[in-house]
């Protein structure tokens, strides 16, 4: 690709994000499930759960071995669109602590290519508490940039200064909307304006309904909004409009 088309593409095909404020910071939510922070040219993605298939296969449950490939291809597409200077993976990037070691060579190469020329931060998660092996990037338990703090698990208190600006994953938020006798369940972003939970990005990652009591530990009862992932757009709802599973 020539320098010119690459330059043009940034303006012509710039992905459309839903802009919101988190702790006073303007950030964009994208229908792929990633967070885009234009001011810092930073892309944030949560819960990749790479090598989940092989993690199950080790226990005799032969899930399709295509999850890592599917997740990385989707991630590559997003990276192509945003071309970020920095990528933050919000924990549970690998489904278990040995996941990065098991990563098949072609996927390792693919991931390494994605990392080229970028700052890359691995935030540790409960599934992957250690730094990935034979991969670039810096591993941290949490990281703070300006008004935002990036960590895997949300701090379980509501409305304290500690949680203001928190961006996290871990919960795999999903929401269900009912209409005309049918219900639709989709992964979603969940936010109350001070903190934000990202949906899980991995191909084989399920979701936890935001009406679950786990969310009561981080948001005031029903006082938050969700953004359901749709095709080419997000669908905003207030929590009071949602139903449980």
């Amino acid at each position: 690709m020539s320098a010119l088309t690459s330059h043009l593409r940034k303006y012509v095909a710039a992905p459309v994000c839903h802009d919101i404020q988190i702790n006073g910071q303007l950030v964009g939510l994208h229908d792929s499930g990633v967070l885009w922070w234009p001011e810092e040219s930073t892309l944030v993605v949560a819960d990749l759960h790479l090598e989940k298939g092989s993690s199950y296969a080790r226990r005799g449950v032969m899930l399709p071995p295509y999850d890592t490939g599917a997740t990385l291809e989707k991630l590559a597409g997003v990276m192509d669109a945003f071309d970020p200077a920095c990528v933050i993976c919000l924990g549970d990037s690998f489904h278990d602590a040995d996941g990065s070691d098991r990563l098949p060579a072609p996927y390792r190469a693919m991931l390494t290519t994605l990392q080229l020329g970028r700052e890359w931060i691995w935030v540790t998660g409960n599934h992957d508490p250690v730094a990935p092996v034979r991969l670039c990037g810096e591993t941290v338990d949490e990281v703070r940039f300006g008004a935002l703090t990036f960590r895997h698990e949300p701090v379980e208190t509501v409305g304290t200064s500690e949680t203001a600006g928190e961006v996290c994953g871990h919960l795999h938020p999903a929401a269900r909307v009912r209409r005309l006798g049918r219900s639709i369940r989709r992964p979603c972003f969940a936010t109350d304006g001070t903190r934000l939970v990202l949906p899980a990005f991995g191909a084989l990652t399920g979701g936890l309904n935001v009406t679950d009591e786990a969310y009561g530990m981080i948001f005031r009862r029903r006082q938050f909004s969700v953004f359901l992932l749709g095709n080419d757009r997000l669908f905003p709802f207030t929590a009071s409009r949602l139903v449980g599973d």
Partner: peptide
């Protein structure tokens, strides 16, 4: 035995 995938990556975990 291994999930029957064309991508033969589970040989080591075969049932």
């Amino acid at each position: 035995a291994t999930g029957g995938y064309a991508l033969k990556s589970y040989e080591q975990y075969a049932k």
